[in-house]
Design a protein around this nucleic acid. Structure first.
Length: 107
DNA sequence: AGTCGCCACGAAG
DNA sequence: CTTCGTGGCGACT
């Protein structure tokens, strides 16, 4: 595996997300000094530290579930929702119910 | 090295 | 929903 410095920043920031909380792609991007959340998503989809990096705790700033395992819908997304639900983070209609769960929202 | 297309996003119309 | 903007990466030339 080849991990760029940029990716390591992303994984480091994501790994800082505590259980039962979530962060946004934008939040991660800003935290690591990136102006494009898309780059964060690209790094996450690569995520070579899958169990190490809780990529399922990263959602869109729109409170949308976002993506998982390179998918934006399907079984992968349902899996992401299930993982978050197991941590107390509930979703409804593909949207985060309690926005207070967000870290970059003053958590 | 230069160019183009691809992304798990976000903001504006 | 559609369109534009943004930063990073892969592939082609």
């Amino acid at each position: 595996m080849v991990v760029t410095e940029f990716q390591k920043r992303v994984y480091a920031a994501v790994s800082r997300i505590p259980k039962g909380r979530v962060a946004t792609y934008k939040g991660i991007a800003v935290r690591i000094g990136c102006g494009s959340p898309r780059a964060v998503g690209q790094a996450l989809k690569k995520n070579p530290f899958a169990p190490d990096v809780p990529c399922h705790r990263v959602i869109a700033s729109d409170l949308a579930i976002g993506g998982f395992q390179g998918r934006q819908e399907g079984a992968a997304i349902r899996r992401k929702v299930a993982l978050l639900a197991a941590e107390g983070v509930r979703f409804s209609g593909g949207r985060l119910v309690e926005s207070g769960r967000l870290i970059d929202k003053g958590g």
